[in-house]
Nucleic acid binder design. Structure first.
Lengths: 331, 331
DNA sequence: GTGAAAGCGCTAACAC
DNA sequence: GTGTTAGCGCTTTCAC
């Protein structure tokens, strides 16, 4: 592979001039610039970004650390982030933390070691441990989908509490009386807020929360199935379940189907996050839809902002959810 | 952030010795090594991988270029690749080509510019255009899920033809007589092979292929819906459809549900690729299951092999599929 | 406006 | 064994 020196030699200019042409810096004689461009073309020269990054001390790459690559909610975010990144000249590298703080730390280290320009992360825990080193190093950070409790970082989330409230209220309005809730790991802000929304809806309806009807699972399919099994095995099982994410909803539907329990006659279901499969299952699933693409776009824009103004006050954007009523919640 | 010189100074050794300790190269006096490690610890020193990569001329990062981040089949591969990479000391950066050759090229350029150690790619087209530069530069490449027609690169695929053959034969064995096929873009080897498997099954059953019953779509949901609409609008519509991937199958199911066409009474369905939703839809979906995790693992292992022996003969591994019979294909 | 030269932080010859 | 030194390829002062 040719270097900037090869180009310089061929164009009969200095490497500095080649660099100026390639980066649109300073004024370069038009004819010279033309010669440089011709030489670049001829040699098929491509700047070595490693050398460039070393010199510049920062790469034009962002890390997007998501907590579960198999969760369609997170993969959908990616596009939004990518589109903005691309338009600003950044590449995005996707990292899967698998809801494990250890893996999250590993990727943060990589981002640091590779001098990446910024990090967008859906933290697996609302404690700030993993991103501490980034903040210390001055790397712009935005959390997406979830927040961190005590860290001064920008964040983009959806109105989890309100979405959960609407979902639960909708079930109550449709005559369900013993509404259960399966939420995610309490170390995530989404799980906490969705649970809070569920509680507030019950409160507004004048119904006491039965602790038996609240289950915490792991945001994964198997966890949703298991929580459903526990709920339905109760002496007084629920007549409806609000499930805190799409993977757990699939688990719930699977278990109920296997157990021969009919929806919504026996139990009503509302899931969080609307995915294509929601309208294919039978009965069609009522869900709380999230603006995932917009979530990604917004996070990326905030990252750009942050990089431009590192000392601007921290802010958090909340995007609305939308209740999509189908058949699993009406009888 | 501290550099290797800071560590050297604090440990009262040369930078070279620090480097040796950190990379387990050469023999270093035990007591000295201990001092180095203590200094590293004390300063919280982390090697700058950009500088390291520049010097070594290769980064310990692989690019995994997948053709559709929203297709669960591809995101499932990721784990297999990651697990192997991690065990060999590599990081994986995920790139989404969106079935567009242009984006694919862009990521190939990034891989090249960043001096990545290897590339695993599911090519959006079976022409080799995008990876040419990688081969020229001597970067190890493995294609995954799909092959390239004329490029000397290792590949891992599943037995597409056989899987499709079994799926089609299964429909025929269950009394379906007009079996249609919706396959993917003809520029992908998977689509071509799945179509070939469909044809071979018809041939073996002594049934002529009706060109009207063969549709090519884009491996996406909307494309599957549209192809299904076309098929069902035929003067003589099919009584069963073999659908070439999971996203198009969702599209097909969606359209059929909206049209009030019952499965399997009116049409039987078999989809390619088994996903969690397959057993949740009603009727439960018969599919051709693929060993996705294994696909990822194998590709990663082949990449390691390739890097170790760049001149070894090219090889292609084919993994088996498995027909999972449920209710959408039996009547 | 252009070039010479230094230096980003690391590793690998090469001396010792 | 260990240290000195050169240099990976680029960008950016600083002279001119």
């Amino acid at each position: 592979m040719s270097t900037i020196y090869d180009v310089a030699r061929l164009a009969d200019v200095s490497p500095a001039t080649v660099s100026r042409v390639l980066n649109d810096r300073g004024d370069v004689n038009a004819e010279m610039a033309q010669r440089v461009r011709a030489s670049v073309e001829m040699l098929g020269y491509r700047p070595n970004s490693v050398a460039r990054n070393l010199r510049r001390k920062v790469a034009s790459v962002w890390a997007l650390i998501i907590s579960d690559i198999e969760n369609p909610h997170f993969t959908a975010l990616v596009r939004g982030v990518e589109d903005v990144a691309r338009s600003k000249g950044y590449s995005v590298v996707l990292c899967n933390s698998d809801e494990e703080l250890e893996k999250e730390r590993g990727y943060v280290d990589v981002a640091l070691d590779e001098r990446m320009a910024g990090v967008i992360i859906s933290p697996s825990s609302d404690k700030d441990s993993a991103i501490g080193p980034l903040l210390k190093a001055g790397v712009p950070v935005v959390t997406i989908d979830r927040r961190l409790r005590r860290s001064p970082v920008n964040s983009v989330v959806v109105a989890n509490k309100q979405g959960a409230n609407e979902a639960t209220a909708h079930l109550l309005a449709n005559g369900f009386r013993r509404v259960a809730c399966i939420t995610g790991p309490t170390r995530t802000t989404t799980a906490v807020q969705r649970l809070a929304g569920y509680r507030s809806a019950l409160f507004e309806a004048g119904i006491a929360v039965d602790p038996q009807l609240v289950r915490t699972a792991d945001y994964k399919e198997a966890g949703g199935a298991e929580a459903t099994r526990e709920l339905m095995s109760l002496p007084e099982p629920p007549d409806a379940i609000f499930v805190g994410n799409s993977l757990m909803t699939m688990g719930a539907l699977g278990w109920l189907a296997d157990a021969g329990i009919s929806i919504p006659d026996h139990v009503g279901i509302v899931g969080f996050d609307d995915l294509p499969y929601a309208r294919l299952v039978s009965p069609r699933l009522t869900t709380v839809a999230q603006p995932t693409y917009e979530l990604g776009r917004t996070a990326a824009q905030m990252l750009v902002e942050r990089a431009a103004a590192p000392d601007a006050p921290v802010r958090s954007v909340t995007l609305p959810t939308r209740l999509v009523v189908r058949d699993s919640s009406r009888r």
